[in-house]
Nucleic acid binder design. Structure first.
Length: 195
DNA sequence: GACGTTACGGTTGAA
DNA sequence: ATTTCAACCGTAACG
């Protein structure tokens, strides 16, 4: 309730119902894994959740083929803001994956006190044990992430090689977008659950 | 028309 | 087990 009457914030205008049904709420779409919504381009998304991985893949893949962001946006039915964001992130990090959602601040504060404690532990335990403890406490995911990035890159390269043969490869994907989306949401959630 | 940016409402997960 | 809260999400809209 930050919007005060009379003083409409810069980025917030009353949303026109236009292509939304009655409620003034984006069309709801039930997926096997819960509630999705439909954006203005007809694409399905889950508010607050990242787009499915295969869509993200497709975005960077198409961009890699020189397809303009605005076309990608329309073809995949993803808002151009989102396409822009994903592409920017990919350029910066080399990863198509969303950032880590949730959790508390990383306990990175290597205060002198913490350093002292580590020194003490090192003295009393073999270094390998320290590493193991540190890994089980904090790391855990680090190695997996690297592996996944590797898999991700290989997947992308392979996909590109196949798609390179014809633009139909890309356009053909569009025909099954709805299916893909639904499947993607499902797979995405499953992966998320596993992780 | 294309696209960078950002308010918003939402979800998540460690503490 | 439950709550808190700062991180992130994608959309919609402005510029």
């Amino acid at each position: 309730m930050t919007a005060l009457a009379g003083a409409i914030p810069r980025m917030m205008r009353p949303m026109l119902a236009q292509n939304y049904p009655h409620s003034g709420f984006p069309l709801e779409v039930s997926t096997p894994l819960g509630q999705g919504r439909m954006n203005q381009l007809g694409g399905v998304f889950i508010n607050g959740r990242p787009l499915p991985n295969h869509i993200r893949h497709k975005i960077v893949e198409m961009a890699h083929h020189g397809i303009r962001p605005c076309v990608i946006s329309r073809q995949l039915r993803v808002s151009h803001g989102c396409v822009s964001k994903i592409l920017c992130r990919y350029q910066e990090t080399g990863s198509i994956r969303p950032g880590a959602i949730g959790g508390s601040k990383p306990k990175q504060g290597t205060t002198p006190d913490v350093e002292k404690r580590i020194e003490e532990y090192k003295r009393d335990n073999p270094v390998s044990s320290i590493s193991r403890i540190m890994r089980s406490k904090f790391g855990g995911k680090g190695d997996d992430d690297d592996d996944e990035d590797e898999i991700e890159k290989k997947e992308l390269e392979e996909h590109e090689r196949r798609a390179k043969h014809s633009i139909e490869g890309i356009l053909g994907d569009r025909l099954t977008l709805e299916e893909d989306l639904l499947r993607g949401i499902e797979v995405g959630n499953t992966i998320h659950t596993i992780l």
